[in-house]
Simulated assay, not measured.
Amino acid sequence: MTPQHHFLRVGQVVPADQEVATVEIDTLVSEAIAVMARRGFDQVPVTLNGLVVGVFSYRSLALNLAFVRRQDDPLSYPVGDFLEDLAFVRAGSEVEDALEALHQKGAVLVGDEERLVAVVTAADVNGYLWTTTNQFMILRDVELATRYLAQRACADEDELRALVAAVRPEGMNGSPAERLEDLTFGELIAVINGPERFGRVFSRTFGSSRELVFSMLEPVRDVRNKVFHFRDVVTPDEVDLVMNARVWLQRRVRMVQ
């Protein structure tokens, strides 16, 4: 992997199955809308002699309807009468460079007037970012829910500090850890998993089966290390393990609130 691939580029957010569709400048509005509806597009680039001269969109149509005479049917007009301009960006540009244009008009064109490579919409960026980050968000939910249940299980702050210090007797400054937030996820599991500690304290919120809790959380730790340290690709089975843990923890949280 080359260094530039470490940074998010516009080309990375283009859907893999996207097929660029264009219409000629003299295409009727009714025909262009049919193309857009059939393909699920909100806009379509418009060309003249092979060059992109603008974009026809539902918005560009709405913005120009005021200029259509009442006795005329706007669907019978050529799309060339209802164009708007979208910014061109390079596939290798950083997504950050395209955000302002995406915010203003909801889409950008990838390439240039002579060679249109793709159309990137705000929805494409949102979809890419969610697909890329949902593993982080799910793991976040699991870790925060585990902390919450562990904290609620303790009778008071003194009991919580004692349990945390038992797992992390010395912090970076030489003093014992005092908060669950000071612990790694592996150490958090260790706090909960001690047989005596679990039965005496943590069964209050995690339920009676220490083995069930450990068998569910331990694989999450391995997946977490993969995701947060960018080591390997997480498999679908591993995603299912984390999702199942998340659902189970959500249920436990609702039960103790």
Score class of each variant (00 low, 15 high):
residue 61 L to T: 11
residue 86 L to M: 06
residue 132 T to D: 08
residue 109 L to T: 00
residue 212 L to E: 15
residue 158 D to S: 06
residue 235 T to N: 05
residue 23 V to Q: 03
residue 200 R to F: 10
residue 190 A to H: 02
residue 211 E to C: 10
residue 221 R to Q: 13
residue 43 Q to W: 09
residue 169 P to T: 07
residue 58 Y to P: 08
residue 244 N to K: 15
residue 13 V to K: 02
residue 98 A to L: 05
residue 49 N to M: 13
residue 242 V to G: 02
residue 24 E to C: 07
residue 178 E to G: 07
residue 1 M to P: 10
residue 162 A to C: 07
residue 141 D to P: 13
residue 143 E to H: 14
residue 20 V to T: 00
residue 203 S to P: 10
residue 203 S to R: 14
residue 86 L to R: 11
residue 152 R to H: 15
residue 225 N to R: 12
residue 185 F to L: 01
residue 222 D to H: 14
residue 76 S to N: 12
residue 203 S to E: 15
residue 93 S to A: 15
residue 151 Q to T: 11
residue 147 R to S: 07
residue 201 V to Y: 06
residue 85 D to R: 13
residue 228 F to A: 11
residue 126 N to L: 15
residue 143 E to A: 14
residue 95 V to S: 11
residue 65 L to D: 06
residue 235 T to G: 07
residue 104 Q to F: 11
residue 180 L to W: 01
residue 44 V to S: 02
residue 69 R to Y: 13
residue 72 D to R: 10
residue 119 V to S: 02
residue 26 D to S: 14
residue 189 I to R: 09
residue 231 R to P: 11
residue 233 V to F: 11
residue 102 L to I: 04
residue 147 R to E: 07
residue 92 G to Q: 04
residue 206 F to V: 00
residue 133 T to R: 11
residue 52 V to Q: 01
residue 166 A to F: 04
residue 13 V to H: 04
residue 83 L to G: 02
residue 62 A to E: 05
residue 136 F to V: 09
residue 88 F to H: 03
residue 76 S to T: 12
residue 217 L to Q: 02
residue 229 H to K: 01
residue 211 E to N: 13
residue 47 T to A: 11
residue 203 S to F: 09
residue 102 L to Q: 04
residue 224 R to M: 05
residue 186 G to S: 11
residue 163 L to P: 00
residue 41 F to Q: 00
residue 11 G to Q: 03
residue 65 L to A: 10
residue 206 F to R: 00
residue 122 A to Q: 09
residue 220 V to E: 03
residue 93 S to K: 07
residue 1 M to V: 08
residue 182 D to S: 06
residue 104 Q to K: 12
residue 190 A to N: 06
residue 249 L to K: 05
residue 101 A to K: 08
residue 251 R to Q: 12
residue 31 E to Q: 14
residue 147 R to V: 06
residue 243 M to A: 11
residue 242 V to H: 01
residue 195 P to S: 15
residue 177 A to H: 01
residue 186 G to C: 13
residue 199 G to W: 08
residue 132 T to N: 10
residue 253 V to S: 09
residue 192 I to P: 03
residue 18 Q to F: 06
residue 211 E to V: 14
residue 68 V to T: 13
residue 239 V to N: 11
residue 68 V to C: 07
residue 161 R to C: 08
residue 60 S to F: 04
residue 197 R to N: 14
residue 57 S to G: 06
residue 1 M to W: 06
residue 212 L to S: 14
residue 35 V to Q: 10
residue 86 L to Y: 05
residue 132 T to Q: 07
residue 230 F to K: 07
residue 226 K to A: 12
residue 196 E to C: 13
residue 177 A to Q: 01
residue 111 G to I: 02
residue 70 R to H: 10
residue 115 R to G: 08
residue 142 V to Q: 06
residue 71 Q to R: 14
residue 255 M to R: 15
residue 167 V to F: 05
residue 63 L to C: 11
residue 192 I to F: 01
residue 120 V to K: 06
residue 109 L to A: 03
residue 216 M to F: 12
residue 4 Q to H: 13
residue 101 A to V: 04
residue 119 V to G: 01
residue 33 I to R: 02
residue 27 T to C: 06
residue 255 M to N: 15
residue 154 C to P: 01
residue 164 V to Y: 04
residue 113 E to D: 01
residue 172 M to S: 13
residue 238 E to C: 07
residue 230 F to T: 12
residue 16 A to P: 08
